[in-house]
Simulated assay, not measured.
Amino acid sequence: MAEATDPRPAFRVASPTATRELVLFIAIVVVGAGFSLASPYFLTVGNLVQTLRAALELAIVSAGMTLVIIMGGIDVSVGGIMAVSAILIGKSYQAGLSSWVVAPIGLLSGAALGAWNGFLTTKLRVPPIIATLGSMYIFSAIMFLVIGGAWISGLPGTLSPLVNGWVVGIPASLLVILAVYGIGWVLLRQLPYGRHLHAVGCDERSAGLVGINVDRTKIAAYSILGLLAGFAALLYVARLRNVEINIGTTVALEAIAATILGGTSIRGGFGSLLGTLLGVVFIRIIQNGLVLIGVSSLWETVIIGGLLITVLTADAWRNRNNPRIA
């Protein structure tokens, strides 16, 4: 059967996320106001720019996670992908390679590891959570085998301006985030592939019946997530100029949390990159604010976990009345 170029008659791409985005934006304003009253340092330019830079890698990975979850998948190994890519970047720099060579190594290694997850979930039919959980352990083992318990440090700051620089008075990290999300928006809303992602997430079997190559769509989504994880690793190295042994340990759960808080359905079929970005901002504001007022970071985990449970419970109640929103 010829591949359908536009499955829009069968599937709606519009997603019921506008209310979630508005609620999340209001929550950001309220929480930000609370922290600004509790700490005189919260609303300073230096603190806000530092928070933005600290959010850079999470924002980029979360954009890719949104695509995968819209498609009906999930990837808990993305932190491991980021770690392996960062190690390859660090070792390549130590070998004397230039950034023109190192950057493609980081990006392509991430894409390859993401494609591996796509292969497991499509060709071997392993459930996404099991496939990526297994990959997470494999990637973590690779990381420790390569660097053991030592950091890779003293790396060049050639790409540091991408993270720490300014462009006409605007933080370069903000421009990088806007560029990634702008490309993601075009992919999701303006190109046939975005409609294929939504269609597969809504009903995989029906998507196949209208001519969509489901396996190729899934592998591409995991590959894009891996590519973005490799890009995040590159920016991580540019920002810190070293590779720590705990790199990426929380990024997968934080990216999933940001995506779900932003309105993307854990069941697939619809989602919002704007909502995901708001979710990233919300998480980083909570983390930064708690540090400033001297509260244990354990509470940050409690708050984010509680919000996730609340959101998923609300979605479950809504889906009970409307089994498939598409």
Rank of each mutant, 00 (worst) to 15 (best):
E3V: 14
R8Q: 13
R12I: 09
T19Q: 09
R20G: 13
E21T: 13
L22E: 00
V30H: 03
G34D: 04
S36K: 00
L37T: 10
A38W: 03
V45F: 09
V49R: 15
R53D: 04
A55R: 03
I60K: 11
I60H: 05
M65R: 08
G73L: 02
V76E: 01
G80Y: 11
A86M: 13
L88N: 08
L88K: 02
I89W: 06
I89T: 11
A95S: 15
A103C: 00
I105H: 04
G106M: 01
L108Y: 00
G114E: 00
A115S: 00
A115P: 00
K123I: 08
P127T: 02
P128I: 06
I129R: 05
I130R: 07
G134S: 07
S135T: 12
V146E: 12
V146W: 14
I147K: 12
A150K: 14
W151F: 15
G154A: 12
L155K: 12
P156K: 11
G157W: 13
L162N: 12
G165H: 03
S173P: 04
S173V: 04
L174G: 04
L175N: 05
G184I: 07
Q190L: 09
Y193T: 07
G194Y: 07
L197V: 14
G201F: 03
I212T: 08
K218I: 10
A221Y: 02
Y222F: 10
G226W: 02
Y236Q: 05
L240P: 03
N242Q: 15
L253A: 13
E254V: 01
I256A: 02
T259R: 01
G271N: 11
S272W: 13
L274K: 11
L274Q: 13
I285D: 09
I285W: 06
I293A: 15
G294H: 06
S296R: 07
L298K: 10
E300C: 10
T301K: 06
V302F: 12
L308H: 01
L308C: 02
V311C: 01
A314H: 07
N321T: 15
I325Q: 15
A326E: 14
